[in-house]
Design a protein around this nucleic acid. Structure first.
Length: 277
DNA sequence: TTTTCGTTCCCACTTACATCA
DNA sequence: GCTGATGTAAGTGGGAACGAA
């Protein structure tokens, strides 16, 4: 195909539409494969209709009308296209192209919006995951600490059983005989056997109440004679706190054990030994 | 009834140009 | 005035749908 173009004649006939810059581009672009109608004209010369369309921007009014129409319906039926084209003074092809490009822009916006939504959801999930990991690590630490405590007490108890089991049992029997422990006294124990069983010898070892309670708390619980859930349970006379403690506990404390360990050992003997009754 | 062909439309991608900082 | 980034009108190629022959 032979391309024929005269820049001078174009400038002469269409001075407002053919700038120096665009004409140089015009020549270059004609060497490319993709050409616009206004760029490469036939031997007949300039195509005035195509030149007129040179990347003409739509007016604000045209765009507003097209936007309104687009918002009403993204698709464009042939009848509507013809009507819009007539109303705006555009070619139906231009209206169709505008709708195509507008749909593409709309789709891009949708993709962006979807991306933002997904990103927000992802961030929330990550945050929740971090929180769960923190909780898990805290639980692992607690578990380690409790296991160490169990091991320590088990060892302590084992040592006591190995060395003093006979002594302990005799002490406990002596305590039971003396009636020092209210609930464990012969008279009380008959009435409160089920309570004692629940307290001292539960079927579930985990229910044995062993907590860190101070001597004051201990005294208070003794005075009230009430065993709150999860508290150390002493059911003894309250005249003299130390003197009312089980003999085993007294002896352990006298031997240098702290109160908590002494009482835990006492309960452990109750639970594991069980032979004093 | 099935096949073929032409037309139209749409989409994704690309190009060329206008505009702006 | 030049330049790069961005927005937009329009070109291109391919596929789908549809009707006529």
């Amino acid at each position: 195909m032979a391309w024929s173009f005269s820049v001078d004649s174009a400038k002469e006939h269409l001075p407002g539409l053919v700038s120096t810059a665009s004409t140089s581009m015009f020549r270059d672009s004609c060497k490319g494969l993709k050409k616009r109608p206004y760029q490469c004209v036939g031997t007949s010369g300039i195509d005035n209709d195509n030149i007129r369309d040179k990347n003409r921007r739509l007016t604000v009014e045209q765009i507003n009308f097209l936007e309104m129409s687009f918002n009403a319906d993204l698709k464009l039926e042939p009848e509507r296209k013809a009507l819009i084209a007539k109303q705006l003074g555009l070619r139906p092809r231009q209206v169709a192209i505008w709708f195509q490009n507008r749909r593409a822009r709309w789709k891009n916006k949708q993709v962006e919006h979807d991306f933002e939504t997904l990103k927000a959801n992802y961030d929330a999930v990550v945050k929740e995951k971090e929180s769960l990991i923190k909780d898990y690590e805290s639980a692992v630490e607690d578990n380690k600490r409790l296991q160490a405590e169990v091991a320590r007490l088990t060892n302590l108890l084992q040592d006591m059983k190995d060395t003093d089991v006979n002594n302990i049992q005799s002490l406990m029997k002596e305590e039971q005989r003396s009636g020092n422990c209210e609930l464990m006294s012969p008279t009380k124990s008959a009435d409160c056997q089920s309570e004692i069983d629940d307290l001292i010898m539960p079927t579930d070892a985990g229910k044995v109440a062993m907590t860190n309670c101070s001597l004051q708390e201990l005294n208070a619980s003794i005075a009230c004679g009430v065993r709150a859930e999860g508290e150390c349970a002493f059911f003894m006379s309250s005249e003299n706190v130390f003197g009312s403690l089980p003999l085993l506990v007294q002896q352990l404390i006298a031997n240098g054990h702290c109160f908590e360990d002494a009482y835990n050992i006492y309960l452990g003997c109750e639970y594991f030994g069980g032979g004093w009754r």
